[in-house]
C-alpha cells in the first residue's frame, strides 16, 4: 500500500499527535538529568520538577516587597497591550481593506503605498516609536499596530477583490448602493477571513510585544523574561515561555471557535 494512502485510526492519531510532545519532554528531562549529575548546581537545564515548583511559586506567591503576584500582573499587562494592538489593527485593517478592495479610486490611491509600507521592518522603527511616543504603553501598542496592520490591509483587500464579480453585479441589480454592498455583501464575507488573518498575525504580534517589553517596560511577560535572564533563572524563563505558548494557543483556538460558531456558511475555508 502506498504511504499516501495509509491513514491512522482515531487512537493512533491521538497517540501520534501526543508523541512529539512526549519526546520533547523526554529529551529535555534526559539532558537535564545528565547536566545535573555532572553539576548539581547547574542552572542551564533545571529539572522538570524544579520548573514545576517555580511555576507554582510564581503563580501563587506574592512579591516580597509589594505582595502582588507578579505573574498575573505581567500576564494582564501583556494581554492588554496585545489585545489593544491587534484590536486596533483588525479594525483599521478591515476598514481600509474594504475601501481598497471595493473602490478602484482608493485602490489607485493607497494600494501601492500600503505595499511599500509593509516592507518597512517594524522593529527598525522601534527607536523612533520610543522617541515619539515615550516609553509607556502607547509605543508598545503602536509597534504591534505598525507590525501587523500592513499585512492585514493587504490580505483583506485581496480577499475583497477575490469576491466573485457576479455577487457584486447581482447586488447592484437588487438596487444596492456602494455602502450597502460594503456592509451587506463584502463585510460579512471577509469577517471569517479577518479572523483567519488575525490568527496569522498573532505570531508577529507576540514577537513585537516581547521585543518592545524587553527594551523598555516595568511589567509584562517579555519584560520579566529579559529581567531574570540576568540571574540565569532558567526555571522562571521556561515557566514564562510555556505560559506564553499556552496563551497564544488558547487565543488561536478561541478565534477558530468564534469563526466556526458565527460563520458556519464559510465552511471548509476555516
Amino acid at each position: 500500500m502506498r504511504l499516501i494512502n495509509l491513514k491512522p485510526g482515531r487512537p493512533l492519531a491521538v497517540f501520534l499527535a501526543l508523541l512529539p510532545f512526549a519526546l520533547a519532554f523526554l529529551a529535555y528531562a534526559v539532558a537535564s538529568q545528565i547536566r545535573l549529575e555532572a553539576n548539581a548546581a547547574d542552572k542551564l537545564l533545571p529539572a522538570p520538577g524544579t520548573v514545576w515548583d517555580t511555576a507554582v511559586r510564581l503563580t501563587t506567591e506574592g512579591d516580597r516587597r509589594t505582595g502582588r503576584i507578579l505573574f498575573w500582573h505581567d500576564t494582564w499587562a501583556s494581554l492588554q497591550r496585545l489585545g489593544l494592538g491587534i484590536g486596533i489593527s483588525a479594525g483599521v485593517g478591515l476598514i481600509f481593506g474594504l475601501l481598497i478592495g471595493l473602490l478602484p479610486l482608493m485602490r489607485s490611491f493607497l494600494a501601492q503605498f500600503v505595499a511599500v509600507l509593509s516592507m518597512i521592518p517594524p522593529l527598525a522603527l522601534l527607536p523612533i516609536l520610543f522617541i515619539v511616543f515615550g516609553l509607556g504603553e502607547l509605543s508598545k501598542v503602536v509597534l504591534i499596530v505598525i507590525g501587523t496592520l500592513p499585512f492585514l490591509i493587504r490580505d483583506l483587500s485581496q480577499r475583497v477583490l477575490d469576491l466573485p464579480e457576479e455577487l457584486l453585479v447581482k447586488a447592484q441589480t437588487l438596487g444596492a448602493s456602494s455602502w450597502v454592498i460594503a456592509i451587506r455583501v463584502a463585510l460579512p464575507q471577509v469577517m471569517p477571513r479577518l479572523i483567519q488573518s488575525v490568527r496569522l498575525s498573532l505570531g508577529p504580534a507576540w514577537l513585537f510585544l516581547i521585543a518592545a517589553e524587553a527594551i523598555a517596560s516595568d511589567l509584562g511577560l517579555g519584560y520579566r523574561i529579559f529581567l531574570v535572564r540576568r540571574y540565569l533563572a532558567m526555571d522562571v524563563i521556561l515557566t514564562y515561555v510555556i505560559w506564553i505558548t499556552i496563551l497564544a494557543f488558547l487565543i488561536d483556538w478561541t478565534l477558530r471557535w468564534v469563526s466556526r460558531r458565527y460563520f458556519p456558511w464559510a465552511g471548509a475555508g476555516l
Partner: peptide, 12 residues
Amino acid sequence: GVVFQRYSVFPH
C-alpha cells in the same frame, strides 16, 4: 435582474 451560472446567491 440577473442570474449567472454560478455565484448568483449570497453564501453568507
